[in-house]
């Protein structure tokens, strides 16, 4: 169903990032790198959710006509 397509793409991206993040935390021994990597991953996930799920662009673009 095409109207949900964006949602599924984001869902897959979030799932992949969550798994990668977990493996990264398990494998990376350097604490600083681990902290930075996790911050980057969390920031990306939060950005995806806010941009696509929470429709952040509507704040400045206004409400779209459906």
């Amino acid at each position: 169903m095409s109207i949900f397509k964006v949602g599924w793409f984001v869902a897959v991206a979030l799932a992949v990032l969550t798994v990668v993040e977990y493996i990264f935390a398990a494998e990376m021994a350097d604490a600083t790198a681990r902290f930075l990597g996790l911050t980057l991953s969390a920031g990306t996930k939060a950005g995806l959710i806010m941009w696509f799920f929470m429709h952040l662009p509507r704040v400045w673009r206004g409400e779209e006509v459906h």
Partner: peptide, 24 residues
Amino acid sequence: VMYWHFVDVVWVFYYPALYLVQGV
């Protein structure tokens, strides 16, 4: 739904800070 996503965003940061940052 926006509120729900926001709660999710918070967890996106809290989860690694509590569970992962010390190494698994």
